[in-house]
């Protein structure tokens, strides 16, 4: 269990390739969401429309910085898992999990707060805003579930199979963080 798990294999593991394909579809999904945002924006004389407040800037940017910084513990977990350092893998995953869960909790709070200020059912702005931002939060939730699952499995020890899982999940998180930058910039763009 403590040996280097798949040093004999040259190619990236199949599980990692599966995650690459999944990330490709999800990135395209966000591409179409952002494209739709600008399609609707350039047809509307006032954006956001009258009666809808401009998006807040400071708090989402700070949260974004926190989320992007979790790429570091996630990548460390991937390196530790492949090196067979199980305790270090667990610690890195736990660090990322705490930061990301805190991020998601605050973001859900902001989301509910936004829902009280303007409705997705009143204007196209509200519709695309809550759909796009909600899709992003859903992806953060998926990443947290993947990580929590792996953490649970790793309490039973590290294996090649689980190390591939950590590597693939790390790739997923890097992709989510890149998408987070794109989504947040679009979300804040009316105030910038």
């Amino acid at each position: 269990m403590s040996t280097v798990p798949y040093a004999q294999r040259v190619a990236k593991p199949n599980g990692w390739w599966g995650m690459v394909v999944f990330v490709a579809t999800e990135a395209t999904l966000f591409g179409t969401l952002i494209g739709s945002y600008y399609d609707l924006r350039f047809r509307t004389p006032r954006w956001p429309p009258a009666g809808v407040p401009d998006p807040k800037v400071a708090v989402p940017l700070i949260l974004l910085a926190v989320l992007v910084s979790t790429s570091i513990p996630v990548q460390l977990a991937s390196v530790f898992a492949r090196a067979g350092r199980t305790a270090a893998t667990r610690l890195a995953l736990l660090t990322a999990l705490v930061l990301q869960s805190g991020y998601l909790a605050l973001q859900i709070h902001l989301y509910v707060d936004d829902l009280h200020r303007f409705s997705p059912q009143a204007t196209a702005y509200g519709s695309i805003y809550f759909t796009m931002v909600g899709a992003h939060h859903a992806h953060v939730l998926v990443g947290i579930v993947l990580e929590a699952w792996l953490l649970l499995r790793l309490f039973g020890g590290n294996t090649v199979y689980r190390a591939v899982g950590v590597q693939a999940t790390a790739f997923f998180w890097h992709a989510v963080n890149v998408l987070a930058v794109a989504v947040t910039i679009v979300q804040l763009s009316p105030s910038l």
Binding site: D39, L40, R43, Q121, A122, T123, A124, Y125, S127, I128
Partner: peptide
Amino acid sequence: LQRKVGFHFFDVAHGGD
């Protein structure tokens, strides 16, 4: 979302396209 939840993406009256 537009048909079942009342969002607006495609109806011009609410800023849709």
